[in-house]
């Protein structure tokens, strides 16, 4: 079909005058490029992106999350004011044009505080996820690659950590260790706690994948070529499981933001003078007067936690489906 068309174009071209032939040539080029496009092998990343684009809800999540990032990190550059600026004449003002999110008990601009708290929540979630992902990949690949006793020991250990109810242990750890540290160290502590409690699921998945990958021919070839264990894992195995790692990290990020805000809400997470969405809600709801008559104090951070976590979950869910379409919506 395509070839016939091209021939036809060529035939027509001869008969046409100079100006017209230019137009025809453009048409031909267009058709050629179309042909080329059909021949191109699409890369796996492109396939995933194409699948991802189909999911409207995932794109919506991407949009919302991008918006939140812009508001958190770019808008503060243009409105430089200290989050601790106190204004005694503007205590507890409802949202208005100068103070978009109203003001708090010291007359501080609440928009500013919410944005700052959001940055902390995002940082803590991101770093905790990085720690958990790193540990998960490390333990999972070692267990899966070496098998035997090492595998047994590591997986038993993972099982113990996994079987522990997450929240009570996180609270207890934070309370037991937290008193020795000041506020900024405590933020680090929370990241580490979330990280060391959150790696087990990924480790199990990676291990399972590697157990099946190990038997495939390309791994046998890699071994036969005498490639070092470390390079076998890093260069040949990890690239095959990278999509799983990304999905797990995305969903883990959403979960960690939620847990951090819960810990801070209970008073076992981020503490003054730092702030985070969970801590803002804790402070706002300490008195029932604020809950009832100054709802902006807790609604804004609450809605923002929900929107952030929801959008990240939309992205993660969309990615999971895009990577493995057979798994659709499971």
């Amino acid at each position: 079909m395509e070839e016939n068309k091209n021939k036809k174009v060529e035939l027509e071209e001869k008969e046409l005058s100079v100006e017209e032939s230019k137009a025809a040539q453009a048409l031909r080029e267009e058709q050629l490029s179309k042909q080329e496009r059909d021949d191109v092998v699409i890369s796996p990343t492109k396939v995933i992106w194409n699948n991802f684009k189909e999911k409207k809800i995932a794109l919506l999540g991407l949009g919302i999350f991008a918006f939140i990032l812009v508001v958190s990190f770019i808008i503060p550059i243009f409105t430089p004011s200290d989050i601790n600026d106190i204004d005694a004449t503007k205590i507890y003002q409802a949202p208005n044009f100068t103070n978009w999110f109203g003001t708090d008990k010291l007359g501080r601009d609440y928009f500013n505080r919410v944005v700052t708290g959001g940055k902390v929540s995002l940082y803590v979630g991101a770093i905790a996820t990085t720690i958990a992902t790193f540990l998960g990949v490390l333990v999972g690949s070692i267990a899966g690659f070496y098998g035997g006793k090492i595998d047994n020991l590591l997986m038993r250990f993972a099982e113990i950590v996994r079987s522990f109810p997450f929240l009570p242990l996180a609270i207890t750890l934070s309370a037991a260790l937290g008193s020795r540290y000041d506020a900024s160290q405590k933020m680090l502590l929370i990241m580490v706690i979330l990280g060391i409690l959150g790696w087990t699921g990924l480790a199990r998945m990676i291990r399972g994948m590697i157990l099946s990958l190990r038997e495939q021919e390309f791994m046998v070839a890699a071994k036969a070529l005498g490639i070092k264990d470390r390079n076998q894992i890093l260069r040949h195995i990890i690239p095959n499981v990278v999509s799983i790692i990304i999905v797990s990290a995305t969903l883990g990020f959403a979960g960690n933001i939620l847990v951090e805000s819960g810990l801070s809400f209970l008073g076992f997470g981020i503490t003054d003078p730092d702030t985070s969405w969970g801590l803002l809600i804790k402070d706002a709801t300490a008195s029932s007067t604020n809950v009832q008559w100054r709802p902006w104090l807790w609604i804004f951070p609450g809605v923002l936690i929900l929107l952030t976590v929801l959008s990240v979950n939309f992205i993660g869910d969309g990615l999971r489906d895009a990577i493995d379409p057979r798994n659709n919506g499971r």
């Binding site: 939620l258 819960g262 807790w298 609450g302 976590v309 939309f314 869910d317």
Partner: peptide, 17 residues
């Protein structure tokens, strides 16, 4: 997904309110 993403304390306060 909405249920998984909802912070329980925020939802609780919303219901109380």
């Amino acid at each position: 997904l909405l249920g998984i993403s909802m912070p329980s304390f925020f939802f609780g306060i919303l219901l109380i309110y």
